[in-house]
């Protein structure tokens, strides 16, 4: 398969981003087991959105249903564009 990535996960770690009032975005090379004990499978895209509201018709992936359900998560702890505390000296 082309575009094979490094075996060393530290070189390209998977990043999980909780989206306010929405899904978890998962970026990177992951496998997802449909249920405990099931064979892990490669998702069809490099970034996937995992359902948090439990309303999705394509769970474990998000289908946007959280908006219809008016799903609310806890307020985010940081804003887009604002550096995280560990992000160094940048303003």
């Amino acid at each position: 398969m082309k575009n094979e990535r490094s075996e060393d996960p530290s070189e390209d770690p998977v990043v999980i981003t909780p989206c306010p009032n929405g899904p978890l975005l998962v970026r990177g090379d992951v496998l997802i087991a449909p249920e405990p004990g099931a064979e892990p499978q490669k998702p069809p895209r490099r970034v996937v959105a995992l359902c948090r509201c439990n309303m999705s018709s394509i769970a474990p992936f998000c289908d946007g249903s959280h908006k219809l359900a008016n799903f609310r998560t806890r307020p985010p702890r940081y804003n887009i564009g604002s550096p995280r505390e560990d992000a160094g000296e940048e303003d």
């Binding site: 989206c19 975005l25 970034v47 959105a49 018709s57 946007g64 887009i80």
Partner: peptide, 23 residues
Amino acid sequence: HVEADAVHEQIAARDLAGALAQD
């Protein structure tokens, strides 16, 4: 598109539009 755009929605709103407005 049900699956892909649920992903794209978050990236487009936050990392594209949001970050562009900030930068």
